[in-house]
Design a protein around this nucleic acid. Structure first.
Lengths: 203, 203, 203, 203
DNA sequence: CATGAATGAGACTTCATTCAT
DNA sequence: TATGAATGAAGTCTCATTCAT
């Protein structure tokens, strides 16, 4: 019933990102999104089950694209610290390059209610697995300490990076987010490193 | 116009915590809170400007109590690492001891819209200052590295702890949150430490 | 939650009868009914669960009043033919005296969908029982033939009277419905009578 | 513009009967009927002016077929009571033999709104004329009483038979409708008969 | 003849807030 | 102080119909 592909599908998702970023989650009516996408209200419902489905799809598409790209890039790197550096860099660069998306992901979508947060959990889990895989590799390879659980390590890494991103989005000052990549790397690399030593940020 | 003290004032705030924890943010109507508090709907408006004011007050009161208690306890400790350990411990213990409050602070209140998040920012800033003060003291005292900014250090510390707390609240498994205190301390202490070395968790 | 008594409750039901009679079932919005009743839209929902509930209540109240009045009047009469005459008379007189109600009961409410028709079934059953009781009494007393089942007798009586009423409501000519009472009586009395004989219409 | 013949025309009408019988009037969308008929949505509009026209045509076709067949059969019979018996028999047998059609005619189509009921009136009038013709013949021939108007007689006959049919369709028990033919005949024959006497059901 | 993607009008219901008592 | 009945604004989604192909 709901076509999940095609130009209009993408248009609507991009329109939703823009509208939500500019108006906030609770002030983004379907009619606004439709107008921004250049389609009729009803057309939204040819591509999505309901409004919630637009938001969930938005998250799945954006998050899915990022996770699979990140996975590919990380796989191309051997050194655990370089992997870590790459992950932090990609995460923050992605957000810095699309402020609309950053607003939506870091702020607006978190105002959604339980059912959306639930559906969002799945693509987030893929990202969690990606991070845990990276940590696990570092531990097996000997670079990362083994005295902390994968889950905890992932929570700390994700929590730290996520908070930095959120602060950046909320800040009225227009500072560079990517400038934070190297210092964050230095903190987190030391935190994970077996002996407190780690190579410089490699990129 | 709005009395900000008295039994009823506290009753209403506690009722709000319970109702929001049990019903979720978007399903916590004023009438539900009033019923839980044992007062009439209209009475709420004798103590609070509007519904938003109830939520903001809730956050201010709970966060204010915690921050001032934490400040007192940290002031009584000299060693920067012990301060860090104490902070992590208090933060997580407070949430573990009041699951209702944890649900509201970590999940539900984050679904509120811009105006509430804005008002919430202020008491959060007090907590930010507390953390930054702690880091600053450690840097001046020589225990904490000086090559990262206060703000970044605070974001990383808060982000990491906050994410651990959120994961705990959302988890269906009933694991102990306080059991995480020591491992988190080990990670964050090493992250901040000048040379990668740090004392064991002291409590 | 929904108060089912009071002046406003009656006002809303009477308003619904008027609005539905004048606008037809599918063109009777809640806002129209509220305006006619002199209350705000939301007030409807203090007295009724939803729009459907207004319609169902309308039917229950009107039908209930009629059935219990009819029961009382029939109980006061002994002769089976006189009972039959009274029933036909009350049924048609009630509708003739309130053309709005007649329109709603005979035409508009029958356009409602399954769930309403379902809820409406119960008060209709009370009326069915009333008719069957009357027939049964006549059979036991010897005036009415015993070679037809109660249910069939009731269907024929109700169907005949109902169709006469419906035709009257739909007719553009303004003829008298009560003038039909006596002829209908003559037909149905003969139909039921043991030997084809029956007393004249007694009222 | 609208072709009113051809296989597709019939297909669509039969599809409409099936879809409406199975889904109810208010849940029978044009797209459902089109799918059931094996044509595209737009094709419906090559054969019918609009959705309403489908329903009206359905009624006209089905009712027209029945009325003309009934007319032919009645014309072949001389005796007024036999004509009456034949009419009751054909009416109920037709419905019993096509439960889908019975559902649509007795229940679903009555939920339609004024404009459809209006258009439906015309083929119904043909049936009314048929019944009135039969009564008139019986009166002239001396078998049927002359002290009731044609219109009233028709209303009573149709109302009684129609109610019996409706009750049968709505009933969850699977009883035989045709088994009712003979008893109904006995009631209505006596009701119409000049002297209360009438021949037995002849078929 | 046939398709089916796109259109866009229209209404029920919730719930924060007020104010007469 | 306290009550709670009344208010009324605001948004999602369905589906009959069209028209370019």
């Amino acid at each position: 019933m709901a076509k999940r592909t095609g130009d209009k599908y993408r248009n609507i998702i991009e329109a939703a990102v823009k509208v939500i970023a500019e108006n906030g989650y609770h002030n983004s009516q379907v009619s606004k999104i439709a107008k921004e996408a250049g389609v009729a209200d009803g057309t939204i419902y040819l591509y999505f089950r309901n409004k919630e489905d637009v938001l969930i799809s938005l998250f799945k598409v954006k998050m899915g694209e990022f996770t699979s790209l990140a996975q590919k890039e990380l796989d191309a790197i051997q050194n655990p610290f370089a992997k870590l550096a790459k992950l932090i860099g990609m995460h923050l660069t992605r957000l810095e390059n699309d402020r609309h998306l950053a607003l939506v992901l870091q702020i607006q979508l978190r105002q959604s209610d339980a059912s959306i947060r639930n559906a969002i959990a799945e693509p987030l889990k893929d990202y969690s697995r990606l991070i845990e895989g990276m940590v696990s590799h570092g531990q097996n390879e000997g670079s990362f300490r083994k005295d902390i659980g994968l889950k905890l390590a992932r929570q700390i890494l994700f929590g730290a990076i996520d908070e930095v991103a959120t602060s950046w989005v909320l800040s009225s000052k227009n500072y560079s987010l990517s400038a934070q990549i190297e210092p964050i790397y230095r903190v987190l690399a030391k935190a994970l490193s077996t002996d407190g030593r780690h190579p410089d940020y490699p990129f």
